[in-house]
């Protein structure tokens, strides 16, 4: 934990500097650039690429969360019980689909651009969230449920006041998995012309410019690690509040 206290602000500072003041890093990347070639990616501002990248991930994950949690609530009600085995089959099979393949397969259906990337991220993001929300809602402590029924809460009140809050920490883990996958898949989205930070890496690969590859790779990697860490902290905080 003590390492985190120093490391976390340091990494945030490095990330901010890399995105906002890319020129500061010219000496660092210089040795990796081809002789006479560009060192710092300047075809688009890194800030706008970062915002677009994070925006795509946030939008897809938000939509996936709403739909997946709704579906999980529906199949865990008595009326949806017939769909439980099917939903388990779909999540098991769906998660063996490689994210890259999902992205590649949406292009023939929807064409190039940000749209297909959003759809692919949304579809793939549903699975971990649904799986975790479903598990959480089906493994609630029976004693608590009995108590909720005993004090006269109706179905709706039980769902809002008891089931969903208790299911929140496990559901959040699913959302975190889904966001991490979305961050990675969005990076590959630049191969289908979505505006993301992957653009920098791809430009580096196409022109044999390792400086671009490093620059893009480090920014994306830092974003992923810091967001993952922030979500883990959030989960820990909520779990402590629930358990305390």
């Amino acid at each position: 934990m003590r390492i985190g206290v120093i490391l976390r602000p340091l990494l945030v500072a490095i990330l901010l500097a890399m995105v906002l003041r890319p020129d500061w890093f010219r000496p660092v990347f210089e040795p990796f650039a081809p002789a006479g070639g560009p060192v710092i990616y300047e075809r688009a501002s890194l800030l706008s690429l970062s915002l677009s990248h994070l925006g795509i991930v946030a939008l897809a994950s938000l939509a996936a969360t709403i739909v997946a949690v709704t579906l999980a609530i529906l199949v865990t009600r008595p009326a949806g019980a017939a769909f439980r085995p099917l939903s388990r089959t779909i999540t098991n099979m769906g998660q063996t689909f490689p994210p890259v393949a999902v992205l590649a397969l949406t292009v023939p259906a929807l064409g190039f651009g940000t749209g297909p990337t959003l759809v692919a991220l949304f579809l793939y993001g549903l699975l971990p969230i649904f799986e975790n929300a479903f598990t959480a809602l089906t493994t609630l402590p029976p004693a608590t449920m009995d108590a909720a029924r005993g004090i006269g809460l109706n179905r709706w009140q039980r769902l809002i006041r008891v089931e969903l809050p208790l299911a929140l920490p496990v559901t959040l883990t699913g959302i975190r998995l889904s966001i991490v996958i979305a961050l990675g898949t969005a990076t590959i989205g630049s191969t289908v012309a979505a505006r993301t930070l992957g653009e920098v890496i791809i430009a580096g690969l196409l022109t044999n410019n390792t400086a671009f590859v490093l620059q893009g790779g480090l920014i994306v990697g830092l974003f992923a690690v810091l967001i993952y860490d922030a979500l883990v902290q959030l989960e820990g905080y909520l779990a402590r509040r629930m358990g305390g």
Binding site: G216, G221, V225
Partner: peptide, 21 residues
């Protein structure tokens, strides 16, 4: 190891290039 897993695949593959080069 779990931090390693969060690094987006394209970035990870890209970062291997200078290292192995």
């Amino acid at each position: 190891l779990s931090f390693l897993q969060t690094i987006p695949s394209l970035a990870m593959f890209g970062l291997m290039i200078p290292i192995l080069g």
